[in-house]
Amino acid sequence: MGKKLNRVLLIDDDESTNFLHKIVLEDNVEIKNIEVAETVTEAFEILERSKGADKTEPDLIFLDLNMPGMNGWDFLEKYKGLHKNSLIFILTTSANPDDKKKAEKIKEVSGFRNKPLTGEMVQEIILEYFPH
């Protein structure tokens, strides 16, 4: 502990998954503001909203791939054009190696993990990406 994050955005269409991930995050790192989006559209609304205000961009975004309508890949496609620099981690249930390969080619993606998010995963990410 001891590390502090300002903002984390969770994008997943399953409410219960978001709820669980929020708890896991809260238990492992101090975060000022955890926001939840159940669709890609909602996620962009949240990202847009933060632009004008004094709020900063999210430090971390956890992204589900399989979502109704616009999916995780669609999110990444649109996100590229925004030139933001949140760290994006894909969290997916499908252990599909093709998805992993595809994700590795996208420079905006920092990591690829299988759901559910665990305390160890959070610790690992904090250690590696937020050492100070």
């Binding site: 269409d13 409410e15 159940e38 669709t39 909602e42 109704p68 309508g69």
Partner: peptide, 14 residues
């Protein structure tokens, strides 16, 4: 199982 809308907007299982 493919859906286009959030579950809270339209119910259904795809």
């Amino acid at each position: 199982f493919q859906r286009l809308h959030a579950r809270k907007d339209y119910i259904g299982n795809g």
